[in-house]
Deep mutational scan, measured.
Amino acid sequence: TTVHVNGVTYHFPNPEEAKKFVDRVVKEAGLTVEVKGNQWDVE
């Protein structure tokens, strides 16, 4: 699973890890998340 955060790419072994990361980032920074298949874009 690939997560893009403001142009930076993070790779995770599974969607659960990616979701935990995204949830944390979104809570801390108040960002928006767009999910496209296995790819997350966070802005």
Score class of each variant (00 low, 15 high):
22 V>G: 02
37 G>M: 04
25 V>Q: 05
4 H>S: 14
28 E>K: 04
12 F>A: 00
17 E>C: 05
2 T>G: 01
39 Q>T: 09
25 V>R: 01
12 F>G: 00
31 L>C: 14
27 K>A: 12
22 V>M: 08
23 D>L: 04
38 N>I: 03
21 F>E: 01
29 A>H: 14
32 T>F: 03
18 A>V: 02
5 V>I: 13
36 K>L: 15
24 R>S: 13
33 V>Q: 06
30 G>C: 09
36 K>G: 15
30 G>E: 07
37 G>P: 15
35 V>Q: 04
20 K>G: 05
34 E>C: 12
22 V>R: 03
16 E>H: 07
6 N>K: 04
26 V>H: 09
8 V>D: 05
43 E>M: 14
6 N>S: 05
12 F>S: 00
30 G>H: 07
28 E>G: 05
33 V>A: 10
23 D>N: 04
30 G>S: 06
26 V>G: 09
20 K>N: 09
26 V>R: 07
35 V>W: 11
16 E>Q: 07
22 V>A: 07
39 Q>E: 15
5 V>L: 10
34 E>W: 02
7 G>N: 04
23 D>Q: 04
11 H>N: 06
27 K>V: 07
11 H>W: 14
17 E>D: 10
28 E>A: 04
8 V>Q: 09
18 A>S: 02
40 W>I: 09
29 A>R: 00
26 V>F: 13
28 E>Q: 06
10 Y>F: 09
21 F>N: 00
4 H>F: 13
9 T>S: 10
15 P>H: 12
14 N>H: 03
42 V>F: 08
21 F>S: 00
3 V>I: 09
42 V>Q: 10
23 D>H: 03
32 T>K: 06
40 W>T: 08
3 V>D: 00
41 D>S: 09
13 P>L: 12
12 F>Q: 00
18 A>C: 05
28 E>P: 07
13 P>V: 08
23 D>R: 01
37 G>E: 14
41 D>K: 05
4 H>Q: 13
8 V>N: 06
3 V>E: 00
12 F>W: 00
41 D>R: 04
18 A>F: 03
33 V>E: 14
39 Q>H: 14
10 Y>V: 03
42 V>G: 09
26 V>M: 13
11 H>Q: 05
26 V>D: 06
28 E>I: 06
26 V>P: 04
5 V>M: 10
8 V>H: 08
16 E>R: 03
22 V>N: 03
18 A>N: 00
13 P>I: 10
41 D>T: 15
38 N>P: 14
5 V>A: 04
19 K>M: 13
14 N>K: 02
32 T>N: 12
35 V>M: 07
16 E>N: 05
43 E>T: 14
28 E>S: 04
23 D>W: 02
41 D>W: 15
33 V>D: 13
33 V>Y: 06
36 K>M: 15
42 V>K: 09
40 W>M: 07
23 D>P: 00
12 F>T: 00
41 D>A: 10
23 D>T: 03
19 K>N: 06
32 T>P: 07
7 G>W: 01
9 T>A: 13
12 F>I: 00
19 K>G: 05
28 E>F: 05
38 N>S: 06
14 N>C: 05
31 L>E: 10
13 P>D: 12
25 V>Y: 11
14 N>G: 06
7 G>T: 02
12 F>Y: 01
18 A>M: 04
10 Y>L: 05
11 H>Y: 13
20 K>C: 05
9 T>D: 07
15 P>L: 13
17 E>W: 02
32 T>G: 10
10 Y>C: 04
4 H>G: 04
16 E>K: 04
30 G>M: 07
5 V>K: 01
25 V>I: 14
43 E>W: 09
22 V>C: 11
40 W>C: 11
37 G>S: 03
24 R>G: 10
43 E>Y: 13
16 E>S: 06
29 A>Y: 14
37 G>N: 11
32 T>E: 13
13 P>K: 10
37 G>T: 05
37 G>V: 14
18 A>Y: 02
20 K>D: 11
29 A>C: 14
35 V>N: 13
13 P>N: 12
22 V>W: 10
27 K>R: 08
3 V>M: 03
19 K>V: 06
33 V>T: 12
7 G>D: 03
42 V>L: 12
16 E>P: 00
23 D>F: 03
20 K>L: 08
5 V>T: 02
36 K>Y: 12
24 R>N: 11
43 E>H: 14
13 P>R: 09
12 F>L: 01
27 K>G: 11
20 K>R: 08
9 T>R: 07
30 G>W: 05
3 V>Y: 02
31 L>Y: 12
21 F>T: 00
2 T>H: 08
7 G>S: 03
17 E>V: 04
